[in-house]
């Protein structure tokens, strides 16, 4: 089976791993605690693809997702990685 980088596919929104150092500042800006963030599973294909680039991603890390939105043009959201 031919493998390709799903992150490059047009239908997959941009996923960026947020550096651990920046997490505190980010959460402060958002005005929420980490647990309030929407979640993404470690087993999600996107996280697996990201792991190929930046090594193991531990549960608790934050991923920034930039996607096209019908209502606002471009929407930026954050998700916390969880286990399984």
């Amino acid at each position: 089976m031919a493998k390709f980088n799903i992150l490059l596919h047009e239908m997959v929104p941009e996923h960026i791993l947020v550096p651990v150092e920046e997490e505190g500042k980010l959460l402060e800006e958002l005005g929420i605690s980490k647990n309030q963030l929407p979640k993404i599973r470690k087993s999600d294909p996107v996280i697996k693809a990201l792991e190929k680039i930046s090594g193991d991603i531990e549960p608790g890390r934050i991923v920034k997702i930039v996607r096209k939105s019908r209502t606002s043009g471009i929407a930026t959201i954050y998700r916390m990685v969880i286990g399984e």
Binding site: L30, G31, I32, N35, Q36, L37, P38, S69, T71, S72, G73, A75, T76, I77, Y78
Partner: peptide, 22 residues
């Protein structure tokens, strides 16, 4: 009040209502 959409556990559903607060 900050226009976040939250559930009963205060988990975020949308960072800002409708993603454009409109």
């Amino acid at each position: 009040e900050e226009r976040k959409v939250l559930d009963t556990e205060d988990s975020v559903i949308q960072m800002i209502y409708g993603e454009d607060a409109t």
